[in-house]
Design a protein around this nucleic acid. Sequence first.
DNA 1: AATAGAAACAACCGCATCGCC
DNA 2: CGGCGATGCGGTTGTTTCTAT
Length: 318
Amino acid sequence: MGRSPCCEKAHTNKGAWTKEEDDRLISYIRAHGEGCWRSLPKAAGLLRCGKSCRLRWINYLRPDLKRGNFSEEEDELIIKLHSLLGNKWSLIAGRLPGRTDNEIKNYWNTHIRRKLLNRGIDPATHRPITDPDTNQTNINTTTAAGGNLNQNINSSPEVTTGATTISFASTTPNSPATTTHDLVKKEISSDSFTGRKIKNQSPENQERCPDLNLELRIGPPHHQHQNNTLSSSSSTSSYMTQHQQSVEYHHHHHHQTLVTGGRTSGGAIICFTCSMGMKNSKECSCTMSLNGTSSNSTGYDFLGLKNGALDYRSLEMK
DNA sequence: AATAGAAACAACCGCATCGCC
DNA sequence: CGGCGATGCGGTTGTTTCTAT
C-alpha cells in the first residue's frame, strides 16, 4: 500500500520563500491560527506544501523566535540536554525558549560538535575521546565555561549531588560503554512533550537505573493552568510567550498535559525565568529558592549548570 | 579583486506516530 | 483492530555567506 503524497507536487513552489509568501503565511496564521497544515496553503493562497508552510512558520516566521547567537549558557544547556536525550532536537528545543529544533540541530552540527571535540569529548557519546596510542582518556577540564562538564558527565558513571543521586550506570559491568542518552532513550517511557509513547519501559529497565526517574519528561517548564501557585504578576505572565502558547495549542491538540515545573521538591516556588537558568534576571518572580533564600540573589540553577548536576525533578511532570 | 573552500543556515524528504473512523 | 490522513521529527541536502589565499 503506497503512501499518499503530502501535497500535490506538480503545482507547489519549492526552495526559498519569497517575501510575499511569508506575508501571506503570517497574515493567514494571524487570522486563523496554526494547524490544519494540509489545507492551509490553499486557504492562504500559497503554492506550497503544508509541510513547507509549517516548517517556514515554526523555524522562521514565528514572532517569538529569538534569533541571534546562542549564549554560553544555552550552549551548555544544549550539551547537557543532548547528553541526556541524544538527537531529540525537539525535546531540547522545548527547553530553550525562542529556539527551534532545526536551529539547535544546525547549531549542534556546526558549532557544538567542534567545541566538544576541542574539549576532547566525543559529541556522540559525551565521553572523553580515547587516545588509541596510550589507551588513556583525554579529559580536558580547563575549558572556561562549563569546563567541569567532563567531570560531571564523564568521569564517573554516577552523578551525585547533595540530595539526589542520578545514576547512568549499567548494572552489567561487562557490557560495553553505553552513552548516557542511549540509556535514557531506553528508559524514557513517555514523552509528554510530544505525547508519544516510548517503548522499553520494562521492570528490568527500571531496575537497571533505579535512581533515575524513568518517567523523565521534557516539556515547557511552566504551565499556568496547572500551577496556580506561580506568580500571576505581569512580569511572569509575560514569559508565557507566543511560542509557549503555540506549544500549548499543539499539545492540547494531542490531549496531553504539559510539564508543570516551577516547584521544587522542597515546596519552594521558582519562576519560569529561573527555571530556564536565567539567573538574576529582572523577570525573576520567585518566592523562594531551593534553600529558602531569595532566588534573585542566587538564581536557580536550571539543570545544574552551576553545580554540574541535572535536576531531574525540574524535568518531571506529575 | 577574484576565487576556492569552509561554514552557516534554510528547506526538503522520508518515516514514525498519533488520532479518528 | 486495522486503515488512513495529519502532523511532527530527525537526517540530509542545497544554497548562501564568510574567510583565507
